[in-house]
Amino acid sequence: MPVLRIALTVNGVPVTRAVEPRTSLADFLRYDLELTGTHVGCEHGVCGACTVRVDGVLVRGCLMLAVQADGAGVETIEGVAGRGELADLQQAFAEENALQCGFCTPGMLLVAQELLAASPGASEREIREGLASQYCRCTGYHAIVQAVKKAGRGRRRT
């Protein structure tokens, strides 16, 4: 298999690697960089478990190739959570028990963060629709909606 060299930043750290053109961004993050917080649930773009940020925009890591991220700035759950950006959401998720197995959680948190950034006052209906790109098989969504609402309330206050 031929390989291509790519250079990008991941969670603020410059990275240079040789990858096969067919390697998905999600697999590259998980296996090449060992950033295993990005999960892979379907490998065909439906479940949202693989959600990461590329140049500030949420993408499905399983539908983008690593070579397409050449030159980009990629952020994963490890980076975004690590610098405290999600602290209130993480706390709300814990308090509402908005995670069970936790497999959907990294993607869910990133999508919730984007949703609240756009509209911290989102209604329950808007939150449900905003999360409709993400599968959760454990919770039934109710607690996740409550957690996002709670974090939104907190942000409106501050």
Binding site: T36, A94, L99, G102, F103
Partner: peptide
């Protein structure tokens, strides 16, 4: 009470079987 052992899952630091190398 809040589940005491979920912080790792919320930080992307869970260890699922495919994460083991």
């Amino acid at each position: 009470v809040v589940r005491p052992q979920t912080a790792r899952l919320l930080a992307g630091r869970g260890v699922y079987t495919d994460d083991v190398k």
